[in-house]
C-alpha cells in the first residue's frame, strides 16, 4: 500500500476543504471498500480524509408529502435496517440491506459509502490486468475473460462491470436522492441521475466531482398500503453478491388492479437499473401471468449477454416474475415469513 497522510475532520466544511485542496485525497468512512482497494493498489490516495467523526449519523423523518427519511450518510447499514420506519414502511430497503455483505461489514459500512462501492469485477481489482475503469485506455479483460458475474444491461465495448450495491437498487426504485456537499456548496442529486453507464468513460461512475461528499440520503416512504420486497438470487444462501436481484413495490387496489408499481434490477446492470416501461405495463393491469411476463420482458429489454453471462437474461426475467407475483399474492418470493429480517 502506498503511504498516505491522514487527517481526521471535525466538520463537513473542514472535510471538504481538506479533500478539495489535494487532487490525490480520498475520503475514509467505513473503509470496507477504501481500505481493501488501497491494499490491492487499485486506489493510491496520497491523503485520507477520515470523515467517521462527522455528525452525519442517524435517521430523521420529514413529514412533507408522504414522508421522507433523511438519513445521515455515516449511518451504518445495520442501523438503517433496524430503523422503525424502514422495518414497517420500506421492507425492500431493509431486505436489500440485510441481504448484503456480512454482519461485521454491515456494522462498519456506511450507507453513503454503500452507494459508492466499487465493482467486484476481478480485473478491476487486479492492477496486472487490462481495465478501462481502473486504468483508462488499457482495454477490458472481462470481455473475453471470466465474465459470469458481469452485466448484461448498460454495457459498452469498454466495460461490462456490474454495479454491486443492493441498497442502491432499492433506493432507485423509491426515487431516493443524495444530498452532496462540495467546494461550491450543496446540491441534491436524484439517484436516477447519479450513476453513469460506462460508455467510453468507464472510470466516470457517478455525478460526484472531486471533493464532493455525500452528506445525506433522502428516501421517500412508500404509502402504508404498498407491498414491497427485494429478491436476491445468488450462488450461495448468504454473504454473496447478486447474480440478479429485483426491488419492487406494488399498490394493489381492492378490485385486484395494480394502482402503482416500482421496479428496479440489480446484479445485471453496469448501474442500478430502473425500468419505467415495465412499471407502465403494470399500472392499471391485473397481475396475471401474461402481464408479469410482459413486465419481465420489458425489464430485460436490450440486454446483451456474452458466453458466460447470457444466463442472467433469463434469470433476471424469472426473478422479476417471481418477485412481482409474490407481492401481488401477498407472499414472500423465497418462502420466508415477512419480518424475519433475512
Amino acid at each position: 500500500m502506498r503511504s498516505f497522510a491522514y487527517v481526521r475532520a471535525g466538520t463537513v466544511e473542514e472535510a471538504v476543504a481538506a479533500a478539495a485542496a489535494d487532487p490525490e485525497a480520498a475520503y475514509l468512512a467505513g473503509g470496507t471498500t477504501q481500505v481493501d482497494l488501497m491494499r490491492d493498489e487499485v486506489f493510491r490516495p496520497a491523503r485520507l480524509v477520515d470523515i467517521t467523526r462527522l455528525p452525519l449519523r442517524g435517521v430523521e423523518r420529514r413529514d412533507d408529502g408522504g414522508g421522507v427519511l433523511v438519513v445521515g450518510a455515516l449511518t451504518t447499514m445495520e442501523e438503517l435496517a433496524a430503523h422503525g420506519d424502514v422495518t414497517t414502511r420500506l421492507p425492500l430497503v431493509r431486505e436489500a440491506l440485510l441481504r448484503g455483505a456480512s454482519p461485521q461489514l454491515r456494522h462498519m459500512a456506511t450507507v453513503g459509502g454503500n452507494l459508492l462501492q466499487r465493482t467486484r469485477c476481478r480485473y478491476y481489482r487486479d492492477p496486472s490486468t487490462a481495465c478501462n475503469k481502473r486504468a483508462p485506455g488499457t482495454g477490458c479483460a472481462a470481455l473475453d475473460g471470466h465474465h459470469r458475474m458481469h452485466a448484461v444491461l448498460g454495457t459498452s465495448p469498454h466495460c461490462i462491470a456490474t454495479h454491486p450495491s443492493d441498497l442502491a437498487v432499492a433506493l432507485l426504485a423509491l426515487d431516493a436522492a443524495v444530498r452532496v456537499h462540495g467546494p461550491d456548496g450543496e446540491r441534491a442529486v436524484p439517484l436516477g441521475e447519479f450513476y453513469r453507464t460506462p460508455g467510453s468513460t468507464p472510470h466516470v461512475e457517478n455525478a460526484l466531482t472531486h471533493g464532493e461528499l455525500i452528506t445525506h440520503l433522502e428516501i421517500p416512504l412508500l404509502p402504508p398500503e404498498a407491498r414491497s420486497g427485494y429478491l436476491k438470487v445468488r450462488d450461495r444462501a448468504s454473504y454473496e453478491f447478486a447474480l440478479a436481484s429485483v426491488a419492487a413495490a406494488l399498490v394493489v387496489d381492492e378490485d385486484g388492479r395494480i394502482r402503482s408499481a416500482r421496479l428496479a434490477l440489480g446484479g445485471v446492470g453496469t448501474v442500478p437499473w430502473r425500468v419505467p416501461r415495465a412499471e407502465e405495463l403494470l399500472r392499471g393491469a391485473r397481475p396475471d401471468d401474461d402481464v408479469l411476463r410482459a413486465a419481465a420482458e420489458a425489464a430485460l429489454s436490450g440486454a446483451e449477454g456474452r458466453p458466460d453471462n447470457a444466463f442472467k437474461i433469463g434469470l433476471g426475467r424469472r426473478a422479476v416474475v417471481r418477485m412481482l407475483g409474490a407481492l401481488a399474492r401477498g407472499e414472500e418470493p423465497d418462502g420466508a415469513a415477512r419480518g424475519e429480517g433475512r
Binding site: A5, V7, R8, A9, E14, A46
Partner: peptide
C-alpha cells in the same frame, strides 16, 4: 482536526 504529516504529492 487531527493531522498526520504530508506524504509526497
Amino acid at each position: 482536526m487531527v493531522n498526520g504529516s504530508a506524504a509526497a504529492a
